[in-house]
Structures are given as C-alpha cells and as structure tokens.
Amino acid sequence: MYDTILVPTDGSDAANRATEHAVSLADTFGADLYGLYVVDTQRYGKQALGTEDVLEELEERGREVLAELEERADADHVQATIEIIDGRPSSEIMAYADEIDADLIVLGNRGLGGIGGTIGSNAERVVRYGDRPVITA
C-alpha cells in the first residue's frame, strides 16, 4: 500500500508525533522514508534573511531536527533519506512529494506556528491542495 512515505518536520511536538507514525508505517510496510525540513523563508522574509548568517542558523537548526529524525528512524531499523529546502513549507512539501512520488505524507497537525486547537496552515494547505493521501497526526 505504501512504498514511499514523506514526513515533513519542523521539530515541533506535532511533527515528532507525525514522525512516530511515519517510522512505524515505513517499518510495517517496508516503505522508503523521507524526512524533509523546509527553512521557512516566507515567514521571515527576504530582508531578515539578507544576512547569510540568519539563513545559515536556520539551516543549522534544520540539520539538527533531521538528524534527530534519522536517529528516531534508525532506532526502528528504518533508514531515512533526509532533505533540507528553503521556501514556503506547504509548496515545498507538495513539490518534494511529487519529486519522490510519495504515496503517503504524514504531517503534524500543527507546527511551530500553530495556535490553540486548530490545524496549522501548512498542514491544511497540504491536505487541501495536495493530491496525495495525507495523515495529520
């Protein structure tokens, strides 16, 4: 049923929950697991990112989050392929899902930007506009 599973992460609790689901599913179905971190250049804007240092810092954070994901997958003997991309999270998630032809995307229902009990805007866009099965966890 699932050969290629994509789990986008921003290191938030919800994303970590999504990672748990994704690793279990990859393990159970013998699927390839892809972890993606999108450096949200839209949120911070070009001016804030004008200095290379800021972008570099955000990318460093992304690499840490992905290293944790790799470790988590490794604990279940699942090998994860990781990728870090700059851009608008929902667009990059859908573009990357197309690139790897993911048959399942597992998303935290709200990321770091989330407030209260509603689904995050990135998760909502992926569910709404993506044409692939999505688990919001």
């Binding site: 229902n109 909502e124 044409d131 999505v134 919001t136």
Partner: peptide, 22 residues
C-alpha cells in the same frame, strides 16, 4: 474535482486524533 470536501475538511480541522485523507 480536485478540492477537498467539506466533511473531510471539517473532520481534519476538528478531530483531536490522527486523520488519514485518501
């Protein structure tokens, strides 16, 4: 075509449990 239905959207938005939309 191509857009999520209102029932699925409300469930995804309101559920406090994992939801798979297929």
């Amino acid at each position: 075509g191509g857009k999520i239905g209102s029932v699925a959207e409300r469930v995804v938005r309101s559920a406090d449990r994992p939801v798979l939309t297929a």
